[in-house]
């Protein structure tokens, strides 16, 4: 455990530095994960490039059709952001259960994304919102849908010399709502046994599902979208029966493991229950009366 610590002043400097020090350098943002990995001797970088103070990578901006979250935005900022109290409430729900307040004041959403932990809590919400990542590297900037960005457990399509600078979320149409639900052995400080994010948009009449996006964490090698369940729900009556069916379909789509936190079998059952519950919460939040 011995490394040099670098503090570039701009994104360009940071990328240049990463290129120069490749492959022995790692970016560090909040550090809540990487410092533990270094201490556990899981990684041993020779250089850490601190991006936490880079200008322009923090904070939440809003235009008429989208939100842009700086990659360095802290969970606590999201939790307290008034614009997310409405249809994007899942963002708040996930941000508020990641570690304790102390971690929420340190950890960044960009860090959580590039870690690509299968059990990341924030990633399912972003995935259910079809988030797009803006990335800067030596060859300029590119944008990638989050869906294509995470490729496996701890693996992303990010090059070691690239930085995620922001995350963009399209605003939801009317009659939309989101929900995030999580199960763990405790009520706080938990790595999810399973977590589910749902985004539901109802048809104009308000009784059928126009579009549904379901993202599930800790139930497969990476956070995934339950496409079969989503496809089934489109055009279906938004009711308990269809939500329960979607839960069953999602449970068939998942590929959980057994570990010290839970068995694969229990995780699969949770997926079924939690998908149904997340959808129910969305439906209630759309403000429509249940039939």
């Amino acid at each position: 455990m011995s490394f040099d610590f670098h503090r570039p002043a701009t994104v360009t400097e940071a990328v240049d530095l990463a290129q120069r020090l490749f492959p022995t350098a790692r970016f560090i943002a909040g550090g809540s994960d990487i410092v533990i990995q270094i201490n556990r001797k899981k990684i041993d970088p020779s250089h850490l490039i601190d991006v936490a103070c880079l200008p322009g990578l923090s904070g939440i901006a809003e235009t008429s059709d989208e939100f842009t979250l700086g990659a360095l935005t802290k969970y606590h900022t999201i939790e307290t952001h008034p614009a997310f109290a409405g249809s994007l409430r899942a963002l708040i729900e996930a941000a508020s259960v990641i570690g304790g307040r102390q971690v929420q004041n340190i950890a960044t959403i960009g860090g959580n994304i590039v870690n690509a932990s299968p059990a990341a809590d924030f990633v399912p919400v972003l995935l259910a919102l079809d988030a797009v990542l803006d990335i800067t590297g030596p060859n300029g900037s590119r944008s990638v849908p989050l869906q294509d960005f995470i490729v496996g457990p701890g693996k992303t399509s990010l090059l070691p010399v690239e930085i995620v600078t922001s995350i963009r979320l399209a605003k939801l149409p009317a009659r939309s709502a989101t929900a995030f639900v999580k199960e763990g052995r405790r009520r706080a400080m938990e790595i999810s046994v399973v977590c589910v994010a749902a985004c539901l948009t109802l048809e104009a009449g308000g009784s059928r599902c126009a579009s549904v996006r379901l993202a599930i964490g800790a139930a497969a090698p990476k956070v995934f979208r339950a496409k079969a369940a989503e496809a089934y729900l489109e055009g279906q009556l938004a009711d308990q029966t269809s939500f329960a069916e979607a839960g069953k379909l999602a449970a068939e789509e998942c590929a959980p493991i057994s570990d010290v936190r839970a068995s694969a079998d229990y995780r699969r059952r949770l997926v079924s229950i939690m998908v149904e519950r997340a959808l129910t919460a969305c439906f209630e939040r759309t403000g429509e009366e249940r039939r």
């Binding site: 052995r185 405790r186 009520r187 706080a188 400080m189 790595i191 570990d259 010290v260 936190r261």
Partner: peptide, 28 residues
């Protein structure tokens, strides 16, 4: 009663950290 156990598998502790050794928090 509900959450704590040091889990052994083949003689090895599977949860030798406070992430997975689950003591009750103020929420529990």
């Amino acid at each position: 009663a509900l959450s704590e156990e040091i889990v052994y598998q083949d003689g090895r502790v599977m949860n030798a950290n406070l992430t997975d050794y689950k003591m009750p928090t103020a929420m529990d």
